[in-house]
């Protein structure tokens, strides 16, 4: 749609720009939520940065794991052509890998600096769908993560995309996921402002996102989906995330006296 913009002679990728804008919006929102829980802005910022580091690393590692069969098959080609290696390193991030990596780094930060993870979660969890929503708008601009061929209302046609098939009407799956992510963010933001337990906020996020992702995966048209038994890798992760959210909700009776 609009993969790059030119600014004073410099080429800026819209995907990267949207990710950075999402991160800025996310950290500002997290700091404002953190005030309600008396968490220092510094701790929110630093834990967020740790989360971003985990997100980048986790999303890339999971992508490389999904692409591992292709990498092994074409190992000689990769060695001969460094451009393909750079292409593998730069292109492709899997959200679920990023989610796991980000949460692990958040846990690392809390342990290292002796903070309670459950105190941080109400400020951090609502911004995950916010950053993700910006990222999906970036996907839309770049033309990656595109939808299946579709000729109905709201269909979109890419003209200058390096990833999506050009001049063919497609389902706007990136914008659909972005819209749902914004709705999830609003719900979680309200929950967090009302000081609802961190466990519930996390459970609601996992529940809503896993259902949305599982359904929207059927509308994805890009081929790198890592299909296993008819379902994509992200759908398998969605099933796992859904099960975890049910566990979090069902387990409340036994931990109701704790601050989670």
């Amino acid at each position: 749609m609009l993969p790059v913009i030119h600014f004073f002679g410099h080429t800026i990728a819209m995907y990267g720009l949207m990710i950075v804008l999402g991160a800025i919006a996310g950290v500002l929102t997290a700091i404002s939520l953190g005030k309600r829980y008396s968490i220092k802005a510094e701790d929110i910022l630093f834990s967020f940065l740790y989360g971003i580091i985990g997100l980048i690393a986790g999303a890339k590692i999971l992508y490389l794991l999904i692409e591992l069969p292709w990498i092994i098959e074409n190992f000689e080609l990769l060695v001969q052509n460094p451009d393909y290696i750079m292409s593998l390193l730069t292109g492709g991030f899997v959200f679920y890998g990023g989610l796991i990596g980000g949460l692990l780094m958040l846990i690392c930060y809390c342990r290292k600096y002796k903070l309670k993870l459950y105190d941080m979660l109400p400020a951090i969890v609502p911004v995950i769908p916010l950053v993700h929503a910006f990222g999906r708008i970036g996907c839309f601009f770049a033309g990656c993560c595109y939808g299946i061929p579709y000729d109905g209302p709201f269909s979109i046609t890419f003209r200058i995309s390096d990833y999506a098939p050009n001049n063919q009407p497609l389902f706007p799956v990136q914008l659909a996921e972005s819209t749902v992510n914004f709705i999830i963010f609003i719900i979680l933001y309200i929950m967090s402002r009302k000081k609802i337990q961190a466990r519930r906020i996390l459970a609601v996020y996992m529940l809503m996102y896993s259902i949305m992702r599982f359904v929207l995966e059927f509308a994805r048209g890009d081929t790198a989906r890592g299909i296993l038994l008819g379902l994509s890798t992200s759908q398998w992760f969605s099933i796992g995330l859904f099960a975890c959210s049910i566990f979090l909700i069902a387990y409340k009776g036994k931990i109701k006296n704790k601050n989670i």
Partner: peptide, 24 residues
């Protein structure tokens, strides 16, 4: 480091488009 991370992320992702364009 924050400025470097943000700017490099934008510049690095711009490189994807270059590789993609070459591939096409």
């Amino acid at each position: 480091s924050i400025i470097g991370l943000a700017a490099c992320a934008i510049a690095f992702l711009a490189c994807i488009a270059c590789v993609g364009a070459l591939a096409s």
